[in-house]
């Protein structure tokens, strides 16, 4: 079967999901991102790679941070960036997703960065472009439903490699609402592909997928068991809307059992790093003392995120 993410030469054509992406491509993206980190230190923070290209940020679901980092990445590559907040425009008037895409193609788009509340929407666009012979247009998934958020997963892997150098000797634990998290799904796919020998997930039973062990990870019933001896602690954001449902008691209760406090973090290795995809809920999934502490690498994650997105966009546009 055709892998919709790769072209006939095996190069990255679209970035839709980390699941099913070969290790060689994952590693190539991380390797390519490294020199991009240096651009931010220059007098002129710009490279000419995407000069003359038009990148459309197509956000059907609101997100300030992800959209901004994609915008910065594209602008540092000299692309023209057009932000479309589609949730408030044409779809409200009844236009279908693919009609929107066709219209933007008629405006000579070179790349779509897509965020959508429905899983699979970026695939639909990529398939449509392929079926209509527009293989010079690339799609980057910036988060679709509960499915995937590949650039977040990649920047997390970059951060781990930056601080821990290797993957083959690590214990990595993902804590929180794995069930609803596209971030977690991308992280777990990348961690297993890159050869992390022990990946654990910890969280309330109601927030863990029933078949999570099939992904090759170990389910830990308590924070203590999950954190003990860990090298990397990846916290997930608890979405407020989950609180309103029947899945959880209250934020205070959640924090008591599943919140990351200095005392719990002490169970991990002394040099363990703490990550969070943002935005953080202080006092819900993470204690301020940990979020602002010496082991947190949450702000470097944001900085690396720009370099990783530059790498992805320049690999796509050059394929």
């Amino acid at each position: 079967m055709r892998n919709p993410q790769l072209n006939s030469h095996g190069e990255l054509q679209h970035l839709l999901s980390l699941d099913g992406l070969p290790k060689g491509i994952l590693t190539a993206i991380l390797d390519t991102a490294a020199p991009f980190t240096e651009v931010a230190e220059r007098e002129v923070k710009k490279l000419p790679l995407l000069r003359g290209k038009s990148v459309f940020n197509l956000f059907f679901e609101n997100s300030t941070r992800t959209r901004t980092t994609f915008e910065i990445a594209a602008k540092r590559l000299s692309a023209d960036v057009i932000n479309l907040n589609v949730s408030t425009s044409s779809t409200k008037k009844g236009e279908t997703l693919l009609d929107t895409v066709d219209n933007l193609c008629a405006m000579h788009a070179d790349m779509f960065v897509v965020r959508h509340e429905s899983s699979g929407a970026p695939y639909l666009i990529a398939d449509h472009l392929h079926a209509t012979g527009r293989n010079h247009i690339h799609v980057v998934n910036a988060g679709d439903g509960r499915h995937a958020h590949p650039t977040q997963g990649l920047l997390d892997m970059y951060t781990i490699r930056h601080f821990k150098h290797e993957f083959h000797n690590l214990i990595v634990v993902v804590v929180g609402d794995v069930l609803h998290s596209r971030v977690a799904r991308s992280q777990l796919a990348a961690l297993t592909t890159l050869g992390v020998p022990e990946v654990r997930v910890v969280g309330p039973k109601t927030l863990l997928p029933t078949d999570v062990e099939r992904l090759g990870v170990r389910v830990c019933p308590t924070m203590e068991e999950g954190l003990r001896g860990a090298d990397v602690v990846m916290m997930l954001r608890l979405q407020n809307e989950r609180m309103n449902g029947a899945l959880l008691p209250s934020p205070q209760e959640y924090f008591k059992v599943w919140g990351l406090t200095p005392a719990k973090l002490a169970l991990a290795k002394d040099d363990a790093i703490v990550m969070h995809p943002g935005p953080m809920n202080r006092g819900v999934e993470i204690d301020s003392a940990v979020a602002d502490g010496g082991q947190a690498v949450i702000l470097p994650q944001v900085t690396f995120g720009i370099a990783v997105r530059m790498a992805v966009m320049s690999m796509l546009a050059g394929s």
């Binding site: 190069e11 190539a28 390519t32 490294a34 020199p35 490279l47 000419p48 790679l49 690999m315 050059g318």
Partner: peptide, 17 residues
């Protein structure tokens, strides 16, 4: 990152910093 053949050849396999 500054090559004029990027459009036809894409990125070099492993660019250095």
């Amino acid at each position: 990152f500054y090559r004029d053949d990027y459009g036809s050849k894409g990125l070099h396999a492993k660019p250095q910093r």
